[in-house]
Amino acid sequence: MTLLERDPNAPVFWKGNMPVTSRYTFGLAGERFFRAIKDEGRILGTRCPECDITYVPATLFCERCMAELTEWVDAGEIGEVHTYTLLFEDMDGNRLPEPEIVAFVRLGDGGLVHRLGEVELDELYIGMNVEPVFKPAAERTGSILDILYFRPVD
């Protein structure tokens, strides 16, 4: 505000930041989930037979009935676009040169938030079948970024 800049009594401010550095351990189920992505290029879930729900990503427990889950399943290679958005701003609020296509891809009774790629906007629709595109096995580290994006299944 120019008025403030001209005012010799304008309030000053003190800039600060918080030096937060931390570890995160994803847990027993999370480790196995990422290891399967890294080593096998597979997305795993866990099943609660009581509630008839398949959790993807795999979890150690059922959030509905609190049972411990021991039945591991392959969530398969094809998911469904449950919803998607075109994101026009980056983390700093700056306009992106091209919008990013971000989707929630339904896998089992859960799914993953990720980018979509190799897709034309006018061909995209809710309910479209998509598959993950993995990085080459040698480059995978056991991370959600081992999946580059999801793309339409022909």
Partner: peptide, 19 residues
């Protein structure tokens, strides 16, 4: 580890919900 590494402006969540 599931969401944050994508480095997306969190408004995308509102976009997904709205759609």
């Amino acid at each position: 580890v599931l969401n944050r590494p994508l480095r997306l402006n969190p408004e995308y969540i509102a976009g997904l919900e709205m759609h």
